[in-house]
Amino acid sequence: MDLVSLLLELKPLMEDPEAHFSRITELLERHQGLAEYEVARFYVSRHWSEVVTKRLGSVDPRERIQAVRLIPLLFPRVTAAGHLRRRVKDADSRVASAARAAVRKLGLADVSLPDSREEPPRRPSPH
């Protein structure tokens, strides 16, 4: 699929992003290899900033996981780090694990302050 086909498929889905959340995520994941992927990412991200923020604040951990999965697909590194900051230490271990995977995928060194409840390691590793 080329960029034009992808954008044509995304356009009607973007009219109701909540209803088509899974399909849009799937399309973005499958087409990350496109040379013009950044154009598609920008197109979707400008419509979805509020949707992702809403899902990150949801009580349902499944919605938070969906939002965390979408962050590396949509946002530049600085914005993504801001969104992932609280999710890395989420109360639900599945959400925290997904957030750590997103941090690794984006190659971020650090997104949150160290957990002061634990002693720092004697020999810290880079990852």
Rank of each mutant, 00 (worst) to 15 (best):
A40Q: 07
E29K: 12
A19I: 02
E38F: 04
V51D: 04
E15N: 05
E50V: 11
E50N: 11
E29C: 00
S45H: 06
Q66I: 00
L34M: 14
I24M: 05
A35P: 00
P12E: 03
D16L: 07
K11M: 05
H20Q: 09
G33Y: 12
V52P: 05
R64Q: 12
T53K: 11
E29Y: 10
E63W: 14
E26M: 13
I24Q: 02
D16Y: 05
R30Q: 15
Q32A: 09
L34A: 13
L13I: 01
L10W: 01
A40P: 08
P12Q: 04
E9L: 08
A19E: 09
A19Q: 09
L7E: 10
Y37H: 15
E18Y: 05
E26C: 07
F21D: 03
S58R: 12
H31P: 03
W48I: 04
V51R: 01
E63L: 14
D60C: 05
V51C: 04
D60A: 11
L56Y: 08
L7S: 08
D16W: 05
E18T: 04
D60K: 13
P61C: 09
L7H: 01
G33V: 12
H20V: 01
S45C: 06
S45V: 03
R41Q: 15
K54L: 06
I24H: 03
F21G: 01
V51H: 05
V51I: 08
A19R: 10
E63S: 03
H47Y: 10
G57L: 03
T53G: 06
V52G: 02
H31R: 10
L6V: 07
G57D: 01
R64W: 13
H20K: 08
L13G: 01
L6N: 02
T53W: 02
L34Q: 10
E15Y: 05
K11D: 13
P61F: 15
L34S: 10
Q66W: 15
E36G: 09
V39W: 00
L28I: 04
E26R: 15
D60I: 11
I24E: 03
H31S: 11
M14Q: 01
R30W: 11
V59R: 15
R64T: 04
K54E: 06
T53E: 13
G57V: 00
G57M: 00
E38L: 10
H20F: 06
E38V: 06
H31A: 08
R64H: 09
I65Q: 07
D60R: 13
V51Y: 01
I65G: 02
W48F: 12
L8S: 15
R46E: 14
K11A: 14
R55A: 02
T25Y: 13
R64Y: 11
L34N: 10
H20R: 09
E36Y: 00
R46A: 07
A19W: 03
V39R: 13
E9S: 12
V59W: 15
L28Q: 07
V59L: 13
Q66L: 13
E63G: 00
E15H: 06
P61G: 09
Y43Q: 14
L56H: 08
I24P: 03
T53D: 14
Y37P: 10
P61Q: 11
E18F: 03
L8T: 11
S58Q: 10
E29T: 02
S45Y: 04
H47I: 02
E29I: 00
Y37F: 15
